[in-house]
Amino acid sequence: MDSRIKSLCKGAGSADKNAACELLEIYYADIYSYLRRLCGSAADAEDLTQQTFLKVWSSLGSFAGRSKFSTWLYTIAHNTYIDSRRENIGSNRDRCDQWWAECIDKNPGPLANVAEHQLALLLYEAVDRLDDDKRHVVHLHYYQGLSIRETSKVLGIASSTVKYRLREVLRILRMKLCVEENELKLEQTIPVAKGETI
């Protein structure tokens, strides 16, 4: 663990509020984005982020330093999210909100051309339609950038299981995208077939 984070954890454990604030500033944005992507609602994400950090401050004493602080933090966030899902089991959660589309429009990044832009949108929607086990590994490993080992610790599963799920995810996404890309190409070639220009 980074020595700076270590000393901040130690400080927070000794009721040093400045240290706790500094830890908060380092990690709150990551935790918010993680929860925001998962729950599909900005208000819910804010609420879950608050709950996560409340749990962090109250259980700081149980953090033994055997794993990275960030891994421990993600574990709490993940469990908080799972708990909230259980509590709101009847509610109809909107997985595919408009955030992805807006966000991609604002910040195209590497998805410069239109086809890739459209493909990315299909991809993120496809991820949101994955079952929970697979969706969680994608969020932690790809979206949040955790290593396979860290992902396995957060989810409480073996590294080999994480690897297996990632392989499965890629297989499913490839299949889905191939189908949808072909449909897209088909739509574009119809006018040409009719003798019109694109």
Partner: peptide, 9 residues
Amino acid sequence: CLMAAPKPL
């Protein structure tokens, strides 16, 4: 594409 997913602020 997944690794370059946009981050909600």
